[in-house]
Nucleic acid binder design. Structure first.
Lengths: 240, 240
DNA sequence: ACGCCTTACTGGTATAGACAACTATTCCAC
DNA sequence: GTGGAATAGTTGTCTATACCAGTAAGGCGT
């Protein structure tokens, strides 16, 4: 398991080893792992080296220490999923609801000033404008309008836009979304919103505007969503 | 500078010392700091202890190491502030507004069921209940109620609760907030909200409920805020 | 049954020393 | 001048050891 002659540092080998054990379920969530002194003895390495490995895993969130008790395997972070949450689909699934959607319109239009600014493109450059009603367990949850530069994702059609766009991006184009900014505000349903979401005019709604970025920092999607406040709250956790 | 007989660990003293030097501009951005051996000799402590201090500062983003060259002061980070944003004060400052607040009430009460659950304490355990109106540039922005277990932060009084609680936690108790969860929803102002925020009944408001955790995962504060939707939007950026 | 001490574990802090890997500089041979 | 070796500095890895501080459990006296 541990090779002292490897160019890979021992502490790093031990890190990988422990991570493996966690992923394989040999070290279970919320249970103690062997003590530092135990690792030191079984692998015939110094306790300080063990500590270096464990420290790294602690700061990566895999483990947590408790003085006098031991070191424990952290619960899997659903949180990290949430933190990296991108699509309505993932969001609903993580809440145990069944997502679906109805396409209202699919257009290619020239970007207006604000959209162009958000997507860092030139005014009047072509963007897809995709309007959907998002359903959870069959009931309307949100009204969503997405803007995507045609240049970045050419070949999107009314049909394949139905697939998860994120899957398409990651798997077909092998790009990935690494960053997003969101702005959230409260408002009140207009007649338009009310009709689509099957609520009354004046009911509270949650407006979320999200811009997602690719690895290179290029924005590729602007999504404006209007959520029914009675059915949706935005959940968000953060770590330092 | 370094007191070996202090109950505060040496590495932590050194951390604070170096942070001070950075903040005071004695250690400039992008320049090398003294070598590990140099610190060890000038303070008559072990090099490994110096490393422990420097490692912490590296993982907090203050410093960066370069093998064979030295350790350098990082450029200040603006983003990290946003991501780790915790208090109303910091939030407003980062938006270029001037925060202030009016204390409405300061009580010690037994925790009700839900509060106890959120703060992971027993029902009826004592908690501070601190109610404030939060102002930005002198105008009401939010109505805020904070719940803090007395056991964790004993000795909080009506007077010192006015100081930044976070500073108090970090500097006096030398604990730090490493994690928080937030739930955000839209609603409509009740007569109570309307009066405090100087808006009309039925106007949209943004409800934010935040639970902050200390490094050991212990929840230490539950804050329920009601923001004027016309003056506040929640902004949030995330990276993978 | 209830406290209290002891004991044996845990992680936390700190030391001193060794060698490896990397960087920058100096100096010398060509 | 240019290339390369020697040198002195840096951080990186690792060991062995010591004592401190918190936790849990068992045993003991009351």
């Amino acid at each position: 398991m541990i090779n002292k002659n490897s160019p890979v540092p021992i502490y790093h080998q031990l890190e990988e080893y422990i991570k493996q054990q966690i992923e394989n379920g040999i070290l279970m969530e919320e249970t103690v792992i062997p003590s530092e002194r135990e690792y030191a003895q079984t692998f015939q390495i110094s306790r300080m080296t063990v500590r270096q490995a464990i420290n790294n895993l602690v700061s990566e969130g895999y483990l947590k220490r408790q003085k006098g008790r031991g070191t424990f395997v952290n619960k899997k972070k659903v949180e990290q999923e949430l933190q990296g949450m991108t699509s309505f689909t993932e969001d609903m699934l993580s809440r145990g609801m069944s997502p679906s959607s109805t396409l209202l319109s699919f257009q290619i239009i020239p970007a207006d000033k604000k959209t162009a600014f958000d997507l860092k493109i030139e005014e009047n450059e072509s963007v897809y404008k995709i309007k959907r009603i998002r359903l959870a367990d069959g009931a309307p949850m949100a009204l969503e309008t997405a803007y995507i530069p045609v240049e970045i994702v050419p070949g999107l059609t009314e049909e394949n836009s139905n697939l998860s766009l994120y899957q398409y991006i990651e798997e077909i184009l092998s790009l990935s979304i690494t960053e997003a900014t969101q702005e959230i505000e409260a408002s009140i349903a207009s007649s338009n919103d009310a009709e689509a979401l099957e609520i009354n005019i004046g009911d509270p709604i949650l407006l979320i505007e999200r811009i997602s970025y690719l690895q290179n920092g290029i924005p590729f999607e602007l999504v404006k969503s209007t959520f029914r406040a009675d059915r949706y709250r935005f959940i968000h956790s953060m770590k330092r």
